[in-house]
Design a protein around this nucleic acid. Structure first.
Lengths: 260, 260
DNA sequence: CGCTCATTTGATTGTTATCAAAAGAAGTGG
DNA sequence: CCACTTCTTTTGATAACAATCAAATGAGCG
């Protein structure tokens, strides 16, 4: 049982795996060279993750724990826009707040940022990988839109769990069917855009139907195939190309073209 | 009454205005030099917008009409992820389909794409503007997530209309309170993640309360202040910084930090 | 234990989707 | 100009889904 709060994987290795998931290969030396093991920070659960004061726009690499980009409305409604896992890069964002959902450890990404701004050809592969990773993030955000806009509660939760499993899989923090997601149901409900109570009932349904198991912050996908179908889940990763996953058909003709 | 389907604004000018909205200034000569007036295409409503076959990943600049990035689920549910207006750049996207919602005209962005890939310092401002515009797009997508995840039907619609007004305003296609949005309610309902019927009733409420007016594809924001408050709308554009718009408070403490 | 926080349950309300159908608008061809 | 078709908007009735309220149970911790 691998824990997301404490695993043995080094920062550079995590980033490399994440890049590999987008089918962009970056030289390990180059990654090592980013000095991701020097200044590290820890954030307690519930705390906002921000750069040390004074330092302008920088980056951090999340190495352990779970963080979230959260948006709060005036009346207290909350929406988590994006979950961040080990291997993800944390960038300050104006309209959202970055919150540590569990204890979080980060590595300083100042040098990474510098290399990305550096136009020299030596860092070309790094920049490419960066762009590819950004594209994946965007695709994930788009999935989030579809989940919230058009999916029922069960679908949202199933889809989300599949996504988390796959994302953690890319950095090697899963087994075939299980992963560690030590979040409260309240937090998950803020990802899924549901009330806590309804999320709870939805999870019970998924459990009852033998689709997922939940114990001590560990999630088991008991019937992945059925989950995938239920949520019409399709991977956002280019590598995982698989015709049978083409479940969201490419828009036959959303708005009727008038007959000629 | 300015029409989104036919206005006199040239492609380069549109792009310049769009960039200006992100507070990045690009030399008009550089924009003219993009040759945005050469090959132009037209797409009929309902039709998929794609590059001419054979040509690899390219770009198009939308000059007239409205397009949408649409995701369709197997059972026919649809979600529009993003509306595209004049001045927006259309890039092919794997998991989504780009559909013309009205008659759409585009300019060829091949040279733009080339300049963006060209690392020479001459195109530095252009690249900066591009990145800034991308950031705005991402912010808009995030707003969409919050709308769908945590807002009620009226809020969603109000928020969306304010957003459209502002976006069209950036390219000069609005008056103080009105803009042209010749979409069917079905299309709007796919943006807002609502059923057509419910969208219709929601619009009626907004009308009844004197908040918006709708006639012939033209929208009038009759009480902008109240709409902004209703939807807790905050602009995503850096220029429009305005303390009173800070309605989504910066996450006081989403998840209780345990008392010490 | 006794505290706090998280999960679970039950009862109820409110919102939104769905179904069915009427009324309105717009274009087509006679 | 009218009948005809097709699409869009609107209305009414009903059902499904999810939020809310209130309270009980469970889990972890000093």
């Amino acid at each position: 049982m691998i824990s997301i709060l404490k695993h043995g994987v080094m920062a550079a290795e995590l980033l490399g795996r994440k890049f590999a998931a987008t089918r962009t290969r970056v030289d390990p030396t180059c990654l090592q060279d980013l000095g991701l093991d020097s200044p590290r920070s820890t954030f307690e659960p519930g705390v906002e993750i921000r750069e040390a004061e004074g330092r302008a726009r920088s980056l951090q690499l999340l190495t352990e724990g779970v963080a979230a980009e959260v948006r709060c409305l005036v009346d207290g409604r909350r929406q988590i826009l994006f979950l961040r896992f080990p291997g993800d890069v944390l960038a300050p964002c104006d309209s959202e707040t970055l919150i540590a959902l569990t204890r979080v450890r980060t590595s300083d990404g100042a040098r990474l940022l510098a290399r990305l701004s550096d136009a020299s050809p030596a860092y070309q592969p790094l920049r490419r990988a960066w762009v590819a990773a950004g594209r994946v993030d965007q695709a994930l955000l788009r999935d989030q839109v579809v989940r919230l806009g058009r999916m029922s509660a069960v679908e949202r939760v199933a889809h989300m769990l599949l996504e988390v499993h796959e994302r953690l899989g890319q950095v090697g923090l899963v087994t075939e069917t299980t992963f560690h997601l030590p979040l409260t149901q309240e937090m998950v409900s803020d990802v899924a855009g549901l009330s806590v109570v309804h999320l709870n009932r939805t999870l019970q349904n998924l459990r009852r139907d033998g689709l997922v198991g939940l114990r001590q912050g560990y999630v088991t996908l008991r019937d992945r195939a059925r989950l995938v179908q239920l949520a019409s889940y399709a991977s956002v990763y280019p590598a995982a190309w698989n015709p049978s996953q083409r479940l969201t058909r490419p828009a036959p003709s959303p708005y009727l073209v008038m007959a000629s």
